[in-house]
Design a protein around this nucleic acid. Structure first.
Lengths: 108, 108
DNA sequence: TGATCAAATCAACTTTATTTGATTTGATGG
DNA sequence: CCATCAAATCAAATAAAGTTGATTTGATCA
C-alpha cells in the first residue's frame, strides 16, 4: 500500500467519523444554508459553547468545514470539495462493484 | 422534525460511523470485489475471528452488508442500496448548497 | 448421537470519544 | 492599557467503542 492510499484512507475515516454524530449533522444542515458564526450556532442548536467548539473542531479537522475570522467572530462554512471526496469514494464503490459470482469457501 | 427524518438521520449516523474505521474500510474493499465468508476475511485481513465478527456486525447493523448462510459458512456481501443512501445525502448537500452570502453576526 | 468446524456471543478490559465547567486567548473599542 | 466579548482550550469526569480470550450456538457429517 502506498503512502497516498494510506492518506486517502485516513481522510475517509476522519470524514465519515465526523459525519457520524447527530449534532454534527445538525451543524452541517445549518451551514448548508449559510455561513454562520459560533454564537449563531450556539443559539440555534441550544448547546454550550465549549461543546460546539469541540464538534466544530472535529468537523474542521476532517476537512469538512472552513473557518474564517472576522473581527471577534469566527464564521464556519462547508468545505464542499471534501464532501465530494467522500461522495466520490461511495460512487466508485457502487460503480466498480462487479457483482461477481460468490466464491466457494472451500475453493482453495 | 418528523419521525421519518429522525430515522433517516440515524441511518446516516450509523452508516457513516460504520465507515469510520480502517479495518471496516478494508472489509468493504475486499467485499467490493466479491462476496466472502468470515473465514476468508480472517485469512486475508489477519485478524481474530471475534474481532472480525464485531466489525461485520457493525457494518451489517448499519445496513451496509448482507449475510447469507450456506451450510456452515456465512457469506457477506455489500448492500449497495444503503451505500447509495449515503452517497445521495452527500450529493444533495453539495447540490443544494446555495453559497448564499454569509450573514452578519450582529444582524439581529 | 457425537465430533467437528464456522461463526456469534460474552464478560472483562483497554482505548477513544464526548461532556462539563472553568480558564485562557485574542480581537475590539473605550 | 483595560474591559469586554467571542471562541478556543483544558482538566476531570462520564460514556461509548473496540479488543481479547473463552464459551456458546448451530450446521454438517460420520
Amino acid at each position: 500500500m502506498t503512502v497516498t492510499l494510506a492518506i486517502t484512507s485516513i481522510s475517509l475515516e476522519m470524514g465519515f467519523k465526523a459525519l457520524s454524530d447527530p449534532l454534527r449533522l445538525q451543524i452541517i444542515d445549518l451551514l448548508q444554508e449559510q455561513e454562520l458564526c459560533v454564537c449563531d450556532l450556539c443559539d440555534r442548536l441550544q448547546v454550550r459553547q465549549s461543546k460546539l467548539s469541540f464538534h466544530l473542531k472535529t468537523l474542521k479537522e476532517a476537512g469538512l468545514l472552513r473557518a474564517t475570522q472576522q473581527g471577534k467572530w469566527v464564521y464556519y462554512s462547508l468545505n464542499l470539495p471534501q464532501f465530494t471526496v467522500l461522495e466520490q469514494y461511495l460512487a466508485d464503490l457502487r460503480q466498480l462493484s462487479p457483482m461477481r459470482p460468490p466464491r466457494v469457501c472451500s475453493e482453495d
